[in-house]
Write a protein that binds this DNA or RNA. Sequence first.
DNA 1: ATGAAAGCGCTAACAC
DNA 2: GTGTTAGCGCTTTCAT
Lengths: 352, 352
Amino acid sequence: MKQKNIRIKDIAAMAGVSEGTVDRVIHKRGKVSSDAADKVNKVLAEIEYTPNLLARTLGTARNYRLIAVIPHPESDPYWKQSFEGLEQGEAELAQFGITMSVERFFYDPTKKESFQQVTLKAFHSKPDGILVAPLFYYASVPFLKELSESKIPFIQFNTRIEQAKSLSFIGQDLFQSGRLAAELISLGNAGNGSYILLHVEEDLPNSIHLLEKEKGFKNYFETELAPQPNHIKSYTLPDSTHVLFEKELQSILRTPNLKGIYVTNSKAYLIATYLEKEKQQVRLIGYDLVEENINYLRKGMIQFIIHQNPKRQAKLGIRTLVNYLLFDKKPTALNLFPLEVITKTNLDSYQI
Amino acid sequence: MKQKNIRIKDIAAMAGVSEGTVDRVIHKRGKVSSDAADKVNKVLAEIEYTPNLLARTLGTARNYRLIAVIPHPESDPYWKQSFEGLEQGEAELAQFGITMSVERFFYDPTKKESFQQVTLKAFHSKPDGILVAPLFYYASVPFLKELSESKIPFIQFNTRIEQAKSLSFIGQDLFQSGRLAAELISLGNAGNGSYILLHVEEDLPNSIHLLEKEKGFKNYFETELAPQPNHIKSYTLPDSTHVLFEKELQSILRTPNLKGIYVTNSKAYLIATYLEKEKQQVRLIGYDLVEENINYLRKGMIQFIIHQNPKRQAKLGIRTLVNYLLFDKKPTALNLFPLEVITKTNLDSYQI
DNA sequence: ATGAAAGCGCTAACAC
DNA sequence: GTGTTAGCGCTTTCAT
């Protein structure tokens, strides 16, 4: 009954070959006669061999080098959280005595050139694996293609370039995210209202991911609330320091029968500030648990935050890469994170 | 710069003692002169020693035995999910070659005697650790006390007996959970409505955890919506097969100006069935991603489900126990899970 | 009380 | 090609 775990040694004995040969067959390291290979494979087919992953890493001295390419942590609290996720992932490795370095290459999320420069450097340093948040579509495509061609395994997170042959994408379904925002913003409002979608401080042509959210948002109203005469409009706002910001926002807020505002990035607090000043009551939905948003969530000026869990994304990215490189574990191509709904009341339960 | 990881061997050399002695000091396995202990401790204080957890498990032959005490998986889809979490946790261990068995002891969640019987058996089998969902308050107190006294480490999950000295509690803050339900149910409803809280098919005296939710629910209306003249009432409904079930529910649904119903357990679908039949429009909130709830969520008859993530709770329970037993890692006393809000639209993102 | 040494299961280097 | 063997860092047993 108590079937002891089968080891390579056992397999070797059963197949009548040596441990080394079994290892070579299992890992396809070549240099093995088809005769021996057959014997081993036969045994392998009969038994259930689950390698001991602990022992495997202990045995291998090899030092892997990973590179993480993300926006600079100081550029935005959101990316700070990703950065912390990397650190946690790395700490986890250290604990298990896995010698794997995680170099961080930062770029300026507002400058395409910065991204290009950094990715070039990353590529030339020939790491064993890359974890990248490819914010810039057009700059990412060639980079990721180069990685594929050089057989450098990589994982995309946060933003997805669909055609890239990444090991895995870790992040959220942005179309659904937009739909969720629409559901939450319209909840309890019985028809015929106006809803505004706002891209704040974004370089839209370069941020196709935001357009996914927009599509989802509109889709929800069309498919789920069709008979109700709702008005949906989307705007792009400039940098909040820009003179036009306030002016444009002001006119937007004068939209008749305005029921809700959906901000597609983490800048909802900018709108909240303004609403607070004007004492206007509009349902406001945004993204990410950054401090300013949290404050307005607490005050009740923001009703919902959709959380992307950047920390967990980054941590999982590291873990996935390690599993692949060290343990031969192929990840799922798409690792879609839950669309987490945060309100004033469940906020604390999300703060670790 | 590239400080190689310090091993026990290094410490031994630095302290001028043998590896065995260092090991004895680190693990306080006794049998070491104060002289030698001092030397080792001195080195330990100067350097940063992080044991290689991989090597540690490889080295230990010891076979640990865990016991999980949960309601029978077939008694409720919710507990089925917990059960699956246990399986996942166990699979994870196997992967790493950790030889640790997880026996499952099931009880009938509607019968206190069944719980008592099972816990007695668990206790007598003297396992190395226990993971328990202590649904019955009065029956749990003495059991958990016995565990403490016999120094059998245990973790509570799902339900928490506060005074028990468990290694850790894994679950949700139910008071906050009630508050969250109140927030979601009242959202967008401008004042003066009636809200009903429903305990369905529950033996209330034995389910003090449900009373926590009730307190939280009422608390939210008092503290956050005080000036608005809302009416909150709570009821307990019998088994749905009972003749009184429909009758009582019917009279409840005739509450004037009824805006929302909050079901404190996973039985919201029973109410949804009825609402659907009567074509009554009331906001409905319940717990747990069980199939019937999911169906009504999809249909739009249930607006929100608060998810407790039983699978992850159970999995983490196993992992925590292993970390404690094998790696000497003390868990946090309170591991509160996020209060996850599920709607029709983000549901799919939660289905793994 | 302490040191030496034999594993744990696997990988990799080295003979043959 | 194939078998043998020396580790990886730790625990544990066995002398001393």
